[in-house]
Design a binder for these strands. Structure first.
Lengths: 116, 116
DNA sequence: CAGGATCCCCAAGGATACTG
DNA sequence: CAGTATCCTTGGGGATCCTG
């Protein structure tokens, strides 16, 4: 049994899901395997709304998975996001998740592949 | 871009999360690596409420990840749940998720390990 | 025994407009 | 450029009781 900030997680699986669960966290993390500007991230993830993206980034940062670096403080701002050392330990898992999705799409007849 | 039942998934990662995301799906799946009776599952997962467990099991079944087998139709019923062939392809990933959680708990100073 | 039915609530997430 | 602020919707999940 694990606990973070007085919230309980009954097993290691649920603990991992606290970090990468939710609708977009894993997607954002996998895009941050390469360090990226906020605006680049937005362009790559148009399906995630501004508000949600920035909330998720904050959570990921406070969870210690990513780092946020501000390069100028006079507008226009430049902000980089990247995986922290801790976040980098997730890379194999993230790649596994993406890979399984691809294979599942190929196998399952419930999934259809559509052009963007 | 993928689509299931008219819902859009922009990348393979989000597709995987559709299957194992949510608060309990991965936890339930990992417990079903060994075939199990409904009542056994309930005992092992006391933190998941009845309603949620049965809803999640239904979803997992309709997603094709698990199979449900009824052994008697006169009460008392006996029902087994197990990973389907498709669901079994998730096993390495599920183990990876559980494993990362353990290591994260050991490393992170935000996580505390508490007795049940 | 293995769930379904009901009621409820909160938090995740969406849309849009605005700002240091 | 990189976010906040505000408002709103929805559905995931909890608690409890009931049933084939």
């Amino acid at each position: 049994m694990y606990s973070i900030d007085n919230k309980q997680f009954p097993c290691s699986t649920s603990l991992t899901m606290k970090y990468i669960g939710g609708k977009w966290k894993a997607v954002i993390l996998i895009h941050l395997i390469k360090k990226k500007r906020y605006s680049e991230l937005r362009k790559e993830l148009p399906m995630v709304t501004e508000r949600t993206l920035s909330l998720q980034l904050k959570e990921l940062e406070s969870d210690g998975l990513i780092t946020r670096t501000v390069h100028t403080n006079k507008p226009p701002l430049k902000v980089d996001y990247a995986l922290s050392e801790f976040g980098q330990t997730l890379i194999p898992l993230l790649k596994g998740i993406a890979e399984w999705g691809k294979e599942a799409a190929a196998k399952s007849d419930q999934v259809t592949i559509v052009p963007c």
